[in-house]
Simulated scan of single mutants.
Amino acid sequence: MTRISVILPVFNEEKFIKKAIESVLSQSLDDFELIIVNDGSTDDTLSIINGFDDSRIKIINQKNQGPGASRNNALEMAKGDYVMFLDGDDWYCPDALKTAYGEITSKDTDISIFQIIKYNDGEYSKNSWFNLNNFSEKFEDRVFNPHECGDFLFNISVSAAQKIFRREFLVKIKARFPEGMYFEDMPFFFYTFLKAERVSIIKRYLYVRQKHDGSITESVDAKFLDTVPAGQILMEIFTKNGWYDMYMFDLLAFKVNGPRYALMGIEDKYKEELFTLIKDDYEEIKSGKYYDDYMENLGPVKRKFMLDVLNAGDYEEFMTLNQTKSSPA
């Protein structure tokens, strides 16, 4: 049995894909399969992939379906005891697989989370999100239940690439990424993390995330329209699995804040479209069973945002309403 299945979805990554693949093939742990999903690339990505001659590489060549479907297709093919994810513009540190495998097997966890370091134009940098700073010393060198993280659950990095998963666990809980949208990591993380019984963290940098103009989170463009459906899926996950009451206060704030921040930063040409998506979502919430929870638990800024969206006919009217100050909490 293969120890680790590394899943690498790629779309038009000709500038970076060679380094990503080489970082896997040169790992100190060599018992792995590398499943590369070419998601309908139109540049030279596929020819670069085909230039590698290594029996550990498996290639799925498909029409463009997006990152969620690409990862799901690879998961169905995966044979490893454990699963790790890599993005086509990033790379692993040399001992990443060995260290992650050693952690998850020695502690018998469902998920183990490691540190990511960022890279930008020759310089490395750290941030609290990828540095696991929210995990205090009491979480180090031991196994814990995810519900122990309740007071900072929504401040944990959702990146699938920052974790190693026991594949049997993913199969058992029928874990899948949402398809047809970006920000697919977010619902996947909360579902898998809260379904896990045993989790651990690794305070070592195993993964390098490259910042560049094409990175999903570096430019607030049309991809951020998907913050709305991603939030809707998240709510469904929490309500269906009995986690809603446990995490209601932070969950509702988290759901409102994603699209709220996106609306502030998104390119002007997408603001009306995003506003309409948010308004439709809020109209549905208003007619449902959880509306009173929003009104009673949101802070004054988020509550005013929600009410202004509901009361406005379009984005321009919303901006006029939202510019007035909210009353104190």
Rank of each mutant, 00 (worst) to 15 (best):
D293G: 08
S55G: 09
R303D: 07
K107I: 01
K223E: 12
M84H: 02
Y244S: 09
A196F: 09
C149H: 03
S327A: 06
E103A: 12
K107A: 00
L206F: 03
M1A: 06
L252V: 08
S327W: 08
N120Q: 11
Q62N: 11
E218L: 04
G66K: 10
D121H: 14
N131A: 00
N134C: 07
Q115V: 01
K138H: 15
L153A: 03
T45D: 08
S112D: 04
D221S: 06
K15M: 07
Y270R: 04
F318T: 01
V309L: 00
S112Y: 04
S287T: 11
N145L: 02
T105S: 06
F189D: 01
F238D: 01
V220C: 12
K269I: 09
A312H: 13
N127V: 02
H147L: 08
K98R: 14
F152E: 09
P94S: 02
D151E: 14
A329E: 15
S326I: 07
F275W: 13
S47M: 05
K18D: 14
V143N: 03
E22L: 03
S326H: 14
Q210N: 13
K289V: 09
G265H: 14
Q62T: 14
K163Y: 01
E283H: 10
G258F: 15
I60Y: 14
T227E: 05
D121E: 14
G80M: 08
G313Q: 06
K18H: 06
P67T: 11
L34N: 04
Y207M: 00
K18N: 08
